[in-house]
Design a protein around this nucleic acid. Sequence first.
DNA 1: AAAATTATTTAGATTTGCCTAAAAATAAAT
DNA 2: ATTTATTTTTAGGCAAATCTAAATAATTTT
Lengths: 219, 219
Amino acid sequence: MHFSVTEENYIKAIFHLQQEDGTVSTNELAAVLATRPASVTDMLKKLKTKKLLSYEKYKGVRLTAEGKRLALAVVRKHRLWEYFLVHTLQFGWDEVHEVAEELEHITSRKLVDKLDVFLGYPKFDPHGDPIPDSQGKMQQQQQVNLIDLPPGTAAEVSAVGSQSTELLELLRHKSIGIGTRLEVKKKFGFDHSIEIKIKGQTAFIISQQLAQALFVKLI
Amino acid sequence: MHFSVTEENYIKAIFHLQQEDGTVSTNELAAVLATRPASVTDMLKKLKTKKLLSYEKYKGVRLTAEGKRLALAVVRKHRLWEYFLVHTLQFGWDEVHEVAEELEHITSRKLVDKLDVFLGYPKFDPHGDPIPDSQGKMQQQQQVNLIDLPPGTAAEVSAVGSQSTELLELLRHKSIGIGTRLEVKKKFGFDHSIEIKIKGQTAFIISQQLAQALFVKLI
DNA sequence: AAAATTATTTAGATTTGCCTAAAAATAAAT
DNA sequence: ATTTATTTTTAGGCAAATCTAAATAATTTT
Ligand SMILES: [Mn+2]
Ligand SMILES: [Mn+2]
Ligand SMILES: [Mn+2]
Ligand SMILES: [Mn+2]
């Protein structure tokens, strides 16, 4: 089976959305794919006949095992290419998402596997997201949202909740990246901001929105 | 300006064909693109309105300066990726053409230039074809067809005349590659076969077809 | 120079992915 | 339980890239 770029993008979007919800709605899909609900309905019918998803009118959609396999293959390529762009070609971590969005659709299986070998079988991409192996298995980090840490906890940043340029720009400005170690000093109920301290720097406060976009693991 | 994969493939095909002929015919294009003459005519009209080529009904076609620029950009990407696949990812030189055919359409300019840096600004791809620099300039080797060498001449293989799997398979079997040094021993008028000698091997005979597919530089 | 062959273009359809506008189903509010 | 609002689907069309079959132009042969 070989699928078009558009079909792969739909499958990947459904995969990501159904992590949160169990089942995915037409409107949600239209929103993340920047297209119209009517177009989504058309595509869902097609992907159903290709057995990549189960779909009943008005009932939302859910990937089949086959659809999940495809989604994981695309995610694997996306994240491996991002790792390549950052670690081999010296891109900034905020510059790679768009390019990987294209590279993830290159079809050669051999290419992906050789790239994986060359990179040394990385387990996480530059944004802290796990890279599926050639079997589609990925190592889940036991990570928690920074907003949920109680004061006094030390932690290491392990992932970001979005690839938006704005977020990554802010993080660069505050010198926060994957692997940064920090300690929660104080939490302010009024605006849910959090005071954190990074070794060698004076403590500073980050907003609720930023804290919610950061995932950490305890150390 | 941004162009579709199909448009880029047409422009690249015209570029290669017009190296030999000055002007390119509808049927030639249909043949190399594995499509129908009628489809070619449609596309030529479109590419004309985009000012990538000059075209008069029944008169054949020729790239404009703009069209040539685009063609060289695609060729640059194609050959840089081939170099990457062979030298970085350890592909065989006979396995890379198809994959590069997809990778050449990735749009990021920054990606190409960073890839070029990473690879060390290579001047020739794995098949001996020159890689255009970011200005579109490429270094032409003063190479000659092996079939035209007189007996007694020593030479080094610098390029192959096609990327076909069959050719590359035959070359691997005879341990001939880019950089192989050889000497022409004798030429046989009957079938235009040529006896050649590679250092450390006993002399052997290659066919006219193979000799015509090999380009060499004198040493 | 006329006839036959070959090359190229037009005409009319098809497929994919998308759109707008309108209809139908579901969910929420009164 | 109706009415209202939201979500989703259908209907009908459009643009890109392709195709087959038929028409026209160019070339070659006789
Ligand atoms: Mn994509
Ligand atoms: Mn990522
Ligand atoms: Mn191509
Ligand atoms: Mn090549």
